[in-house]
Simulated scan of single mutants.
Amino acid sequence: MTNVAVIGLGKVGSLVGTLLSDLFTVTGLDQKLPYTELPFSVETGSVSDATFLESFLQSKDAVVSCLPYNLNLPVAKAAHKLGIHYFDLTEDVPTTSAIREMAETSKGVMAPQCGLAPGFIGIIGADLYNRFTKLRDVELRVGALPRYPNGLMGYSFTWSPAGVINEYINDAEVIHNGIRKMVPSLDGTEMINIEGQEFEAFSTSGGLGTMCETLEGKVDTLNYKTMRYPGHAKLMRFLLYELILKEKRELVEEILTQAKPPVREDVVYVYAVVEGWKGTEIAREEFYQAYHPITINGKEWRAISWTTAASVAAVVEMVAAGTLPQKGFIKQEEIGFEHFLNTKNGSLYKKAQQK
C-alpha cells in the first residue's frame, strides 16, 4: 500500500489524511478546498459523479471515506469495482450491510465501522471478553462530550449531527436473555458514576458493529449505550418523538448545529465491562479511560477528532503491514488490541492512557 485517498476533509478527515501522510502518499478529496493548509495534496470534486470518482481512485491502493454515513456507498462501490482497499467510519447498519455484501467478491479489504463506536470500542470489548472461558455479560459504553457542559442538554456537536440523529432514531441491536433482538434507541437509560461524575447511558444504533453476530449463543447480555450528561435522552425523545421531528431530520440537524456548536475542550469517555467465568471462577474485567484534546504536528485536535482519526488510521496501517487480512470484510472485534496499540497511530491511544 503506497497511495491512499482520503475523501471528506472535515474535522476528522483532515486529521486522517494528516496522520496517514507520514506513512503513505495521501491525496484528499472534497467538494471544496479546506480552509487550512494540509500536509498532502487535495483535489475537488463530488462523489455523486461516478465517472470522476473512479478516475480519482484509479491510481490509489486504498481509500478512506470520512463522509457522512449517507454518502459512503458510492465510494465503497467504486473501491470494489477497482479492487482497492476500502475503510470508513460509518455507524449506519444498512450501509455496513451493503458493504459486507460487496466484500464477498472484493479483491481488497472492505472495512467499514473503523471509528470510535463502532470501531475502537469493539476492539476493547473483544480484548476483554477473550480473557474468559465462558461469558455472561458484555456492556460497552462511549461518550463524546463537552468537558464543561452547560444548558439542559449538556451537549455539543463535535462530530456529524447527521450521524448523531441517525443513531438516535434507528433501532439498536442487542443480545438480551441470550436472544439477539432489536430495541429502540434512546431507551434503556441507566446511570453510571465514574469518579464522582454522574452520566446517563442509553441505547443507540450501530455501536456494536457485528458483535451481536459474533457472540450470538455465547453470551446472555450484550449491549452498547451512548453516555451523556443526565437529562439528555429525555430532551431528545421530546424533540424527536413528541414534536415528531424524527420525520424532518435535516431540520433537526440544522437546529442542533446552530444551537450546540462544537467546543474546544471536549472529552471522550470509553467504558467497557465484561463478566463471565475464567475456568470455574466467576470474574469481571473493566476498561475505563477519558481521552482529552492533544497536539499533533503543532496543532491541537479535539478528543473526538483524534480518537476517531487514529482508530481508522491504525487499521489502515495494520492492513498495509499484513497484520490483518488483505481482502474481504473485517470485523472490528477481530482486530487485536495490542497490535492496534503498536501501530504508529494506535500509539496515540497508548500515550493518552499513560498520562
Results as ranks from 00 to 15, higher is better:
3 N>L: 06
4 V>P: 03
10 G>H: 01
15 L>V: 01
16 V>K: 00
21 S>D: 07
23 L>I: 11
28 G>P: 02
34 P>H: 01
35 Y>R: 11
43 E>L: 07
46 S>T: 06
48 S>F: 02
49 D>I: 00
51 T>W: 06
57 L>Q: 03
62 A>H: 08
70 N>Y: 14
70 N>S: 15
72 N>P: 07
79 A>H: 02
83 G>L: 02
94 P>Y: 14
96 T>K: 15
98 A>F: 12
101 E>P: 05
102 M>Y: 10
102 M>S: 02
103 A>K: 09
106 S>F: 15
114 C>E: 05
118 P>Q: 08
122 G>Q: 10
129 Y>G: 03
129 Y>I: 02
131 R>M: 04
132 F>K: 02
133 T>C: 08
135 L>Y: 04
148 Y>E: 13
150 N>E: 14
152 L>H: 11
160 S>C: 12
167 E>W: 09
168 Y>D: 06
168 Y>R: 08
171 D>F: 12
178 G>Q: 01
179 I>C: 07
180 R>V: 02
183 V>G: 06
184 P>G: 11
184 P>Q: 10
188 G>N: 13
188 G>L: 08
195 E>H: 13
196 G>T: 08
198 E>P: 10
198 E>W: 09
198 E>V: 15
202 F>N: 13
207 G>N: 05
209 G>Y: 11
216 E>M: 00
223 N>W: 15
224 Y>M: 03
228 R>Q: 14
233 A>N: 13
234 K>C: 05
236 M>Q: 05
237 R>K: 11
239 L>Y: 04
239 L>F: 07
240 L>N: 10
242 E>T: 14
247 E>R: 14
249 R>H: 11
249 R>P: 06
251 L>S: 03
251 L>I: 10
259 A>H: 00
261 P>Q: 08
266 D>H: 13
268 V>P: 04
268 V>A: 04
270 V>A: 14
273 V>L: 10
281 E>Y: 13
284 R>M: 12
285 E>A: 10
285 E>N: 09
289 Q>S: 09
291 Y>D: 04
293 P>D: 03
295 T>C: 02
300 E>C: 10
309 A>D: 09
311 S>I: 12
311 S>R: 09
314 A>C: 06
316 V>N: 01
317 E>D: 08
321 A>D: 12
325 P>S: 03
326 Q>L: 07
327 K>I: 00
330 I>A: 02
332 Q>G: 12
333 E>I: 05
335 I>V: 15
336 G>R: 11
341 L>Q: 01
342 N>M: 04
344 K>P: 07
352 A>C: 15
